[in-house]
Design a protein around this nucleic acid. Structure first.
Length: 763
DNA sequence: GTTCTAGAAC
DNA sequence: GTTCTAGAAC
């Protein structure tokens, strides 16, 4: 008999002795964090260490790294830790959340008390350890509270207590004072009476910090296992063993039978979590919606094939209840024909709601062939999933979306209270609505397979994108937590020797900086604010639609520090006068630092919140026109100097550098800095979106089409004029230096190329 | 042996 | 985005 997840976890939990925990306090100065700690420490049976940034450095203020180091060593000694610093912004607490592990839970206690109270306490206070006294305190508290981002379970907390008045604080004190070394506290988010969504959203808009669907706004009693926390749990779960790829290495020609093959079951049951997440999905529309199986199987295989490159270590599994089902055999045959990697995609016979408990296959994400109302009823997979998941799924689903249009999908983080989560290890359900060919069901396409195939393709695209968005969040989180644990202790030693000069910008300093930024935004970019809000809402809702919501995946994109240079220039042009060719109200102009042609300029928007083409919407139409006009002016200036040049103006579909910028680049590509395939293809394939087309699309459709397929950048090297192929960059460059073929007609249309009037390429 | 690419690190 | 470099390609 196989143990289910709960049992095995319990068994292990009982073997071990006291488990230390980390409690991250959050609150403005004067909210009572230190008092809280002292009170608990005095009366608790646990052994606590209070890590206070204000005093950590021999009674003086220290660094965050010092705090982390001290916390790590306290945990090693089996002591529980209070992190006593403001921690009001998510970014400030993220590293402390990473102190958590399967053995160490991370809790949050939010002292979300009225600002007035905090201020009056701070002002009155004398001899406070952080030396925050007097009139300055009011300003500091206010400024900090403006930045307040209430914690969410998705950040990695297993428990959050919100305290909004003194009696809440008392309750939290009692909870932790009486929290003995062997006790456990229930997981979830407690005490949030008035979810501060308005403030949250404002800050989110401004900072563009978009997270996986969260529980902000959930009722006080809701215990929502959110994406991040569950994934981390999953990753380090006591049930997660090692899996070798071979345990899943069934050829596409094989059918993996669930519960009837104990061998398969026992090897793969532990593995998927350590070897990458798995999406289990039913065939969409082929059951009740009566979609042609032959056509559906083509589409499944086609869409699976498209996703292969993006999967990383994730896997896709097509699941069907019945052995020898037609759709499974068709898909298997076609997948084998196309040489689709059977380790990344295979078929499985079993109940999609019991893949782990009965089939030994651990799938963290399952897809549901939903109905348009997202109702539990009906039959088949939909009824089975809603039944198995219990009411929690229904509630979580309704929080995300009310209805679904054919061809779209919605990602629903599954609350930890759902049996599907606890028994099967499912963290997310993705509802997908496919096309309907059944006249007895809504939206029947009446045999129109042109449309039907299109909708089914969209449905799978949406499904796989939804899955990939979950995977990328997971990958990022686990990578970060691994890195930090390894890095921080050694770094911290170095820092402590250097003394407090190496402080990361926290507190006052950072607030000042951000204050300036906020001011600039409200001044400069009123138009875009609503827009950013919209995108956040759609992300929060977890909707994924192949047609218009790719941004859901990328809004969460993290920009590396190296990718911020343009952003800094755009925000503070006055500091970069030496490299700027022009500073205008809405844009600045500069030479590309690494020009890929004789002339290569960037026209950079000054609007905060516009990171890339994907963020551009109708509100930015005028801005894109301005950028084009400015770029054109410069191109024409260069053409005056050298009439042989030809310019193209456009955007990269997915830029490497943050902050929307228009490339103005001469088509000679005569630059030793053009070194690799990516350089070449980013300017000569569909990845490069002509400014004129972008403007037209924004005007007509409200947004630009992106060609963000990675394959574009690794395509064979072809001359941009005669389209001849070349084996490597040096050979290509030697060719283009001599090629005088006319430009392709597509480029000669619609003013995509900018030429001197005398140029013979001019049609 | 040299050239070139592609992936990791920054 | 670049730089660095191992190893593939020649």
């Amino acid at each position: 008999m196989e143990m289910d997840i709960d049992d095995s976890c319990k068994a292990r939990g009982e073997e071990e002795r006291a488990k230390p925990i980390v409690v991250i306090l959050m609150g403005a100065p004067g909210s009572g964090k230190s008092t809280f700690c002292e009170h608990v420490i005095r009366s608790s049976a646990r052994s606590w260490v209070r890590v206070c940034q204000d005093t950590i450095n021999n009674g003086k203020a220290g660094t965050k790294v010092q705090c982390l180091t001290n916390a790590v060593s306290a945990l090693k000694e089996g002591k529980s830790v209070f992190i006593d610093r403001c921690n009001l912004e998510k970014e400030q607490r993220v590293d402390f959340v990473k102190l958590g592990s399967p053995q160490v839970e991370v809790h949050a206690v939010v002292l979300d008390l009225p600002a007035k109270l905090c201020i009056s306490r701070s002002v009155k206070r004398t001899g406070h350890e952080g030396n925050l006294q007097g009139g300055k305190a009011a300003a500091v508290v206010n400024r900090m509270l403006q930045k307040k981002e209430l914690p969410k379970l998705s950040e990695g907390f297993s428990r959050i207590m919100f305290c909004q008045n003194e009696s809440d604080v008392k309750a939290a004190l009692d909870t932790y004072s009486g929290f003995g070394p062997l006790d456990t506290l229930s997981h979830g988010s407690f005490g949030q009476k008035k979810p501060d969504t308005k403030v949250q959203l404002g800050i989110m808009k401004f900072l563009k910090k978009v997270e996986a669907p969260s529980n902000a706004g959930a009722s006080a009693s809701s215990i929502q296992g959110s994406a991040a926390s569950q994934i981390i749990e999953e990753k380090n779960s006591c049930c997660g063993g090692k899996e070798t790829a071979s345990s899943l290495s069934h050829t596409a020609g094989e059918e993996v039978r669930g519960c009837q093959d104990p061998g398969v079951g026992s090897t793969s049951r532990n593995g998927s979590s350590s070897d990458g997440p798995i999406l289990a999905f039913p065939s969409i529309s082929t059951a009740d919606f009566q979609f042609d199986h032959e056509k559906a199987s083509d589409i499944i295989v086609e869409k699976v094939e498209e996703s292969m490159d993006k999967l990383g270590n994730a896997k896709l599994v097509l699941v069907d209840l019945t052995r020898g089902s037609k759709i499974l055999s068709l898909v298997r045959a076609k997948a084998a024909q196309k040489n689709i990697n059977p380790k990344k995609f295979f078929t499985f016979v079993g109940d999609i709601t019991k893949l782990y408990s009965e089939g030994g296959l651990r799938c963290t994400v399952i897809a549901n062939a939903a109905n348009w109302r997202l109702n539990p009823g009906g039959g088949g997979v939909n009824a089975a999933i809603f039944n198995a998941a219990g009411p929690a799924l229904e509630v979580a689903t309704k929080e995300q979306a009310k209805t679904l249009v054919p061809g779209s999908a919605v990602v629903v983080p599954l609350p930890a209270t759902s049996p599907l989560s606890s028994k099967e290890g499912v963290t997310h359900v993705i509802h997908v609505l496919g096309p309907n060919m059944n006249p007895h069901r809504p939206n029947c396409l009446d045999g129109d397979y042109v449309k039907g195939c299109h909708v089914l393709q969209k449905a799978y695209t949406s499904l796989f994108e939804g899955f990939l968005s979950i995977v990328s969040t997971q990958a990022k989180l686990s990578q970060e937590s691994n890195e930090k644990i390894k890095l921080e202790p050694s770094q911290s030693q170095g820092h402590s020797k250097d003394g407090p000069r190496n402080h990361s910008p926290t507190g006052d300093q950072k607030n000042k900086r951000d204050g300036v930024r906020e001011h600039e935004i409200s001044k400069k970019c009123k138009g875009s604010q609503n827009e950013v809000g919209t995108s956040i809402n759609s992300f929060r809702a977890g909707k994924v639609n192949a047609e218009n919501d790719k941004r859901d995946v990328s809004t969460s994109k993290a920009w590396g520090s190296w990718a911020q240079a343009l952003y800094h220039i755009a925000m503070h042009p006055e500091r970069h006068k030496d490299i700027l060719l022009d500073i205008l109200d809405d844009v600045v102009v500069l030479n590309d630092l690494y020009p890929k042609a004789k002339k290569h300029l960037l026209v950079l928007t000054r609007c905060d919140g516009l990171d890339c083409l994907e963020d551009v919407r109708k509100e930015h139409l005028q801005l894109t026109k301005t950028m084009h006009a400015v770029g054109l002016k410069w191109a024409e200036k260069f053409l005056d100097e050298d009439a042989s040049l030809v310019f193209r103006l456009g955007y990269h579909s997915v830029p490497s550098m943050r902050q929307l910028h228009l490339h103005v680049i001469s088509q000679d590509f005569n630059s030793k800095l053009l070194k690799n395939k990516k350089h070449w293809n980013s300017f000569t394939t569909a990845f490069f979106r002509d400014s004129v087309d972008v403007i037209e699309e924004i005007s007509n459709e409200g947004k630009a089409t992106l060609k963000d397929d990675d394959r574009l950048l690794s395509m064979e090297l072809r001359c941009h004029r005669c389209k001849s192929a070349h084996p490597n960059i040096p050979r290509l460059k030697s060719h283009i230096s001599n090629c005088r073929a006319p430009f392709p007609t597509s480029l000669l249309q619609n003013d995509r190329l900018v030429l001197a009037p005398s140029n013979t390429n001019n049609p």
